[in-house]
Deep mutational scan, measured.
Amino acid sequence: APTVVALYDYTANRSDELTIHRGDIIRVFFKDNEDWWYGSIGKGQEGYFPANHVASE
């Protein structure tokens, strides 16, 4: 899976979202739409995150 790096912190608001912190490396499983992508950090943490909070490595 491609990876991206978090540019900003984001705290999940729902159970299907992913909390990310600046500098996190996120594996992107799919891009649901322009605004929300689905991916994982490490083991067990996965969910939707805002695409405008990340950039290609």
Rank of each mutant, 00 (worst) to 15 (best):
residue 1 A to I: 12
residue 1 A to C: 13
residue 2 P to T: 10
residue 3 T to Q: 11
residue 3 T to P: 04
residue 3 T to C: 07
residue 4 V to N: 05
residue 4 V to H: 10
residue 4 V to R: 00
residue 4 V to T: 06
residue 5 V to S: 05
residue 5 V to W: 07
residue 5 V to I: 13
residue 6 A to P: 03
residue 6 A to N: 03
residue 6 A to H: 02
residue 7 L to T: 07
residue 7 L to M: 14
residue 7 L to V: 08
residue 8 Y to A: 11
residue 8 Y to C: 11
residue 8 Y to I: 09
residue 9 D to V: 02
residue 9 D to Q: 06
residue 9 D to T: 07
residue 9 D to I: 05
residue 9 D to E: 08
residue 9 D to Y: 02
residue 9 D to M: 01
residue 10 Y to D: 02
residue 10 Y to M: 04
residue 10 Y to E: 02
residue 10 Y to G: 01
residue 10 Y to R: 09
residue 11 T to P: 08
residue 11 T to I: 12
residue 11 T to Y: 07
residue 11 T to D: 09
residue 11 T to A: 08
residue 12 A to Y: 13
residue 13 N to I: 13
residue 13 N to D: 12
residue 13 N to P: 01
residue 13 N to F: 07
residue 14 R to V: 06
residue 14 R to G: 11
residue 15 S to Q: 11
residue 15 S to G: 09
residue 16 D to C: 09
residue 16 D to M: 07
residue 16 D to Y: 10
residue 16 D to A: 09
residue 16 D to P: 05
residue 17 E to M: 03
residue 17 E to W: 01
residue 17 E to F: 06
residue 18 L to C: 03
residue 19 T to V: 01
residue 19 T to Q: 04
residue 20 I to A: 07
residue 20 I to P: 01
residue 21 H to N: 10
residue 21 H to E: 10
residue 21 H to M: 09
residue 21 H to L: 06
residue 22 R to M: 05
residue 22 R to E: 12
residue 22 R to Q: 15
residue 22 R to N: 07
residue 23 G to C: 02
residue 23 G to W: 01
residue 23 G to D: 04
residue 25 I to C: 09
residue 25 I to V: 12
residue 25 I to K: 12
residue 25 I to E: 13
residue 26 I to K: 04
residue 27 R to C: 08
residue 27 R to Y: 14
residue 28 V to H: 04
residue 28 V to I: 08
residue 28 V to K: 03
residue 28 V to F: 04
residue 28 V to P: 02
residue 29 F to D: 09
residue 29 F to M: 14
residue 29 F to T: 13
residue 29 F to I: 07
residue 30 F to R: 15
residue 30 F to D: 12
residue 30 F to E: 10
residue 30 F to V: 10
residue 30 F to Q: 12
residue 31 K to G: 05
residue 31 K to W: 07
residue 31 K to E: 10
residue 31 K to Y: 08
residue 32 D to N: 09
residue 32 D to K: 15
residue 32 D to H: 10
residue 32 D to E: 15
residue 33 N to Q: 10
residue 33 N to Y: 09
residue 33 N to P: 01
residue 33 N to H: 05
residue 34 E to R: 10
residue 34 E to K: 13
residue 34 E to P: 15
residue 34 E to A: 14
residue 34 E to M: 11
residue 34 E to C: 10
residue 35 D to A: 10
residue 35 D to C: 10
residue 35 D to Y: 10
residue 35 D to T: 07
residue 36 W to H: 04
residue 36 W to A: 01
residue 37 W to G: 01
residue 37 W to A: 01
residue 37 W to H: 03
residue 38 Y to S: 00
residue 39 G to I: 04
residue 39 G to V: 03
residue 41 I to A: 10
residue 41 I to D: 14
residue 41 I to F: 03
residue 41 I to G: 07
residue 41 I to Q: 07
residue 41 I to C: 11
residue 41 I to P: 05
residue 41 I to K: 14
residue 42 G to P: 06
residue 43 K to Y: 10
residue 43 K to N: 09
residue 44 G to F: 07
residue 44 G to V: 05
residue 44 G to W: 06
residue 44 G to Y: 15
residue 45 Q to D: 11
residue 45 Q to Y: 09
residue 46 E to R: 08
residue 46 E to W: 08
residue 46 E to T: 09
residue 46 E to G: 07
residue 46 E to L: 06
residue 47 G to S: 03
residue 47 G to E: 00
residue 48 Y to P: 01
residue 48 Y to L: 08
residue 49 F to C: 00
residue 49 F to H: 04
residue 50 P to M: 10
residue 50 P to C: 03
residue 50 P to L: 03
residue 51 A to D: 03
residue 51 A to V: 10
residue 51 A to T: 10
residue 53 H to C: 15
residue 53 H to S: 08
residue 55 A to G: 14
residue 55 A to C: 13
residue 55 A to E: 14
residue 55 A to N: 08
residue 55 A to F: 09
residue 56 S to C: 14
residue 56 S to V: 14
residue 56 S to I: 15
residue 56 S to H: 14
residue 56 S to L: 12
residue 56 S to A: 14
residue 57 E to D: 10
residue 57 E to P: 12
